[in-house]
């Protein structure tokens, strides 16, 4: 067979493989589990990456090496494509069970001014931070909230006019508390940190953020 004849055939095979990759994983993922052999190779690579994520790091200050080990949710969401619907549902159920609802059954009592400070501060939990207490919420890193704050990120949706637009029904209040406590309960692969579950913020701090979002006097709702 001439060389010319082989080339288009090879090209077709490559294209087919590429297309399969697209459908299964999006354009970016390697065609990992396309065949059992490839799946095993990917698992071996995955194991070496987990090893590297430990050996290439050192504990400094409050940033200990256990931060390099993923929990079930982190692991399932470490891919450009999110897990299948069933896995997502199962993970979300598990995360939902971690949410601590207000100890006194009351979602109010926060101070929106304190909430504003927590929302603006992005500090805390790095290896240069002295203690794990009094962290910021880093809300403005990703969300617009007070329309007067122009330096607002865009990774998350805008929360401008939060309660003015959504009201303050029990359903939305409960959802907001839950989302602040553990965002992964509503979307297992959400970009949002698990503030309460991950001990980033205290219950009191979350109460202040609730006031920042719901208080009619808060600039978020002006």
């Amino acid at each position: 067979m001439s060389k010319k004849a082989i080339a288009p055939l090879a090209l077709t095979v490559v294209l087919a493989a590429l297309l399969a990759g697209c459908v299964k994983h999006g354009h970016y993922a390697p065609g990992a589990s396309a065949t059992p052999a490839a799946g095993a190779a990917d698992q071996a690579l995955e194991a070496r990456v987990e090893e590297m994520m430990l050996t290439s790091f050192k504990a400094t200050g409050i940033a200990s090496l256990d931060r390099q080990v993923r929990d079930e949710v982190q692991k399932a969401c470490s891919s450009p494509v999110q897990p299948d619907a069933e896995t997502m549902r199962r993970l979300e159920e598990g995360q939902m069970a971690t949410i601590q609802w207000p100890s006194n059954g009351d979602f109010t009592g926060g101070d929106w001014k304190e909430g504003a400070r927590i929302a603006i501060s992005g500090r805390g939990l790095t290896w240069t931070d002295a203690s794990p207490d009094n962290n910021g919420g880093g809300c403005y890193n990703c969300h617009a909230m007070d329309p007067g704050e122009v330096s607002a990120g865009t990774i998350g949706p805008s929360l401008v006019g939060y309660a003015r637009l959504r009201g303050n029904s029990e359903e939305i209040v409960r959802y907001t508390w839950g989302k602040l406590w553990n965002a992964k309960a509503y979307n297992a692969c959400s970009n949002m940190p698990r503030n309460g579950y991950g001990k980033i913020l205290t219950e009191t701090q979350i109460r202040h953020l609730m006031a920042y979002l719901f208080d009619p006097a808060s600039p978020v709702n002006k």
């Binding site: 990456v49 994520m53 940033a63 931060r67 390099q68 080990v69 993923r70 949710v73 982190q74 692991k75 969401c77 470490s78 891919s79 450009p80 939990l125 992964k184 970009n191 940190p193 698990r194 991950g198 980033i200």
Partner: peptide
């Protein structure tokens, strides 16, 4: 794509 650490990033 490795999500890890205190904030799942």
């Amino acid at each position: 794509f490795y999500r890890t650490g205190a904030m799942d990033f």
